[in-house]
Each structure stands twice: as structure tokens, then as C-alpha cells.
Nucleic acid binder design. Structure first.
Lengths: 217, 217
DNA sequence: GTCTATAGATGGATAGAC
DNA sequence: GTCTATCCATCTATAGAC
């Protein structure tokens, strides 16, 4: 939820309308997919008029891209912060497990059922496969935040060839991106209820156990 | 490519038209996404008239579902065949690595640059996140083919709790589903060209090394 | 800034000729 | 069975009143 100034000026109304559109769009996109949500759906859900999207954001695609940019920036910042802390704790050479924790923990914590950002994570994951050409181009070419992780992993795995580290990072990202509602539901059916999604700390530990062992292969 | 009878009867023309629509639709859907491809795009690409989709398949969504059903059935059959062979080789108790190979190898081999089925794999992966409600329901509830893999893995890992095996299978599926064109491109940018997608045998070995070690954590 | 009304474009589906 | 022409619904974007 965005912070909205709560006074009686027009600026507050403007900000409130814009924020309402932003939040409604993010939620509807995350739940139903980008192409399945119309500007009409968004404005109706936000309780504002139809023209608001174009007035405040320029177009539907621009709105989509703004949500995408803000949320990915927040996620990258949080991951970078945790990686930085891992560096500080380990004199600049953190072990694989702590590097992976900085990669896994932010989206997992955010996806927790009681977290406001739960919907943001689903939006980000969805943008990876359903985004506009502009978003996909940004995803492909803007890898600077990932480079910090691959550099750290290469330093932590001096015995592994560089390309092996890149591939294993790719595998880890696949593990993260697979954490979608539908996939959890499927796993729940397969395991006949033995897997519960709610406990994110337990899931984080499971992912770290698996991935850390994979890096030591 | 579908098998088409090549005689001069009307049936051959009918089959040829239907097959042309099927192949064009699969390719365009796989490349550009389901919602970004119109019936007009498909019929234009296939060189047939606009009404063909509705005549032969009923609707755009029904066409989509038929492609989905055929391709997933083929993939599941190939995986089951390899799992069966692994069973035969190991007196009914194959090791983790051979089970995972039956899970990984079919989609990887099909995705090889010189394989006709390369496009089918991308279609299947895309259907996982962009499919219709009908397709998503089928994906969630039809887990019988996966159950054979989880059963085999549980038998191969007697020391692991059942739910741990389910989660690790979930992680492995995430590794598979992340093998999309866009993700390979991104990895290529990140590694500055050090990772090449072309060698599927090498990639299969990398995936098996990583996942097998993860199961032994 | 907000809202209504509508332009302008596109898409799925179908009727009817051949 | 094939194809053209068309209907009708839906969508984004915008003009213009207030």
C-alpha cells in the first residue's frame, strides 16, 4: 500500500487517486494476468473514473511498466542490502548459503500470507513471462543486481568453473520463480496436503538446504 | 509436424488445413504468448481462411486446449517411458539420478535447437503461466504422471520425510520450467557469453549434478 | 482534476454464397 | 469444406463539458 498524504488539498486527492489506481492494477494484474485485466476493470475496482489511468500514467502499458519498475527496484534493493550484510558478517567473503539466503529470503518473506507485499511478488513473477516487450527487454539487459550475486558466488566457489556457477545461479532462480500460487496448489494436490505453503521460514530452509548442496556437487 | 495423408481426396485437404492451423497456432503462441496472437494471425500464417479455426476446433480457446492436451500427453508419455526403463534397469528401485533424468531429459532433448519439438516445449512452459482457466485446472488436478515420480523418489530416499521429497521435486520442476528462451538470453547476458544453451547433453548433466546433490542434502 | 461520451481499432464468431 | 463479408462485443485512448 502506498503512503498517501491525508489532508484536504487537491494534491492529496490526486495522490490518493493515483495510489488507488496503482494498487488496484497491481492486485488485478497479479491475480488474473496482464492481458486479462482491462483499464475498465482497474478503474472500477479502484472506484475512480475511466480516464484516470491515462491521465495519471499515460497508458495502460506505462502503468504496467511503472508498477514493474517500482517493485523490482524494491526487491533488488532488499536483496542487495542482505548481500551487503552477509559481506559485513564474513569479511567480504560470505559462504554460498548466506549469498543464497540474500537471494531467496526477500521474495519468500514478501510472499508470506500475512505480508502486504504478497501480491507484489506474484506481480513480479508474472511480469517475467507475461510482460510487455519493454519489460522483457529490461529484464534481459538489466542484470547488474544479479552480477553482484554471481560475483559473490564465484568468489565463494573458487574450485568451480565460472560458467558452472552461472548455470547453478540460473537453477536457483528457477526455484524462486516457480513459487507461484498455481504451483503451490499443484504441489498441495500431489502431496495430498502434506506440503503447506504458509511457513516461509521452513520453506526458506528447505530451499537453502537443497541449493547449497547443489552448489557443493 | 502432424502426419497428413497425401492423396487427392477432400479428407486430405481437410487434414492438411487442420494440421496447418494447429502448427501455426502452436508456433505463434509459443513465440508471442497466447493473448498476443489472434485468430487472424494464425489463419494468415497458415495460409487458410479466417473461419478455419472455428470450423475445425470450435473456438480459439478450444484450439489452445487441444494443442495443450496433445503436447502434454506426449511429454508425459515420454517421461513415463524413461521412468519405466529406469525401473527395469534397477529391479524396480532406481536411484534418484535416474529418476530425475527421466523427468529432465524429455523436455531438454525436445528443446534442443535442432529438434522439431523445440517449439512445443516453449508452448507447454508458457501454458503453465498464461493458460486458460481450463488449462490451469487440468495442470493443477491432473498430477497422476507426477505421482509416479514422487513415489519413485520417496522409495529412493527412505531416510527423507515424505514432504521433503515433495518439496524437492517442486524445486526440480522449477529448474525445468525456468528453461525459457528469455531466461537463457538473460543468463547469456549475465555470464557475458560464457553459458551456451545449445549443448543439451551438457545442460542435462549440469541439472542432474545440481539436483542429485540437492536430494542428498 | 474529474467525469461522461465517444472515437477508433481490433478481435472472436458466424451467416451464407459457392 | 472453403471462403468472404459482416455482426457484435470489447478494449484503449481521448475530446470536451463541468
Amino acid at each position: 500500500m502506498d503512503t498517501v498524504k491525508v489532508d484536504d488539498t487537491g494534491e492529496a486527492h490526486e495522490a490518493a487517486t493515483k495510489a488507488a489506481v496503482f494498487c488496484a492494477a497491481e492486485r488485478l494484474f497479479a491475480l488474473h494476468g496482464f492481458q486479462n485485466v482491462s483499464v475498465r476493470d482497474i478503474t472500477a475496482d479502484a472506484g475512480v473514473n475511466l480516464a484516470s489511468v491515462n491521465y495519471h500514467f499515460g497508458s495502460k502499458d506505462a502503468l504496467l511498466f511503472e508498477i514493474f519498475r517500482r517493485r523490482t527496484a524494491e526487491l533488488n534493493r532488499e536483496r542487495a542490502r542482505m548481500l551487503h550484510e552477509a559481506n559485513d558478517r564474513n569479511a567480504g567473503k560470505p559462504p554460498v548459503r548466506e549469498i543464497l539466503e540474500a537471494l531467496f529470503a526477500p521474495p519468500l518473506k514478501w510472499a508470506s500470507p500475512d505480508n502486504d507485499r504478497r501480491i507484489s511478488v506474484q506481480f513480479i513473477i508474472r511480469s517475467r513471462s507475461e510482460g510487455t516487450a519493454e519489460m522483457r527487454e529490461a529484464l534481459t539487459n538489466d542484470v547488474s543486481h544479479l552480477a553482484r550475486f554471481s560475483d559473490a558466488l564465484i568468489a565463494a566457489c573458487p574450485d568451480l568453473p565460472r560458467e558452472t556457477v552461472y548455470w547453478r545461479l540460473h537453477f536457483c532462480l528457477g526455484m524462486v520463480h516457480n513459487n507461484r500460487f498455481a504451483e503451490f496448489d499443484r504441489l498441495h494436490v500431489l502431496s495430498d496436503g502434506a506440503t503447506r505453503e504458509g511457513d516461509v521460514d521452513a520453506l526458506l530452509k528447505r530451499m537453502l538446504d537443497f541449493a547449497e548442496a547443489g552448489f557443493q556437487a
